[in-house]
Amino acid sequence: MGRNDHIKRFDARPPGQPVDLFDAPKGVLPVVLELLSTPWVRRASDLPSGDGSGKRAEVAVEVEWNGERGGPAAFHYKGVRHRVDTVVMQWAVERRWWDRSRSVSRRCFRVLARGGVWDLAFDREREQWFLVGIVD
């Protein structure tokens, strides 16, 4: 095969249904690893806004927490409840703690929900969830 063969071999059937990435017959790990090592998967918040493919955001949202999984179970955006299919990636940000006006302390989750990739962040200082990036 070649590059990204796990992704290419991924069986997206049944046709017409929303793609459930994690229903692959041989487990999800090879696909996830390939996705993570693939240069075209970028953080939504890194993408320039206004090009139609992704944008930064800073919108307070309500998040339902899944304690068992240790990640968001769903979030509410523009009046719609988005069920989180899976958490693709997590990262943490702690910056400029010595300067209260500019400090950032966040735990971020990249999630797949309703076919899109969303970046959710819990701001520890404000104790609030934010939607910080979107790829449609």
Partner: peptide
Amino acid sequence: DMTPEAPRYVAALAG
């Protein structure tokens, strides 16, 4: 180290 690059870094080294 819980950065966005970490999963790719780990996967690449493990591979």
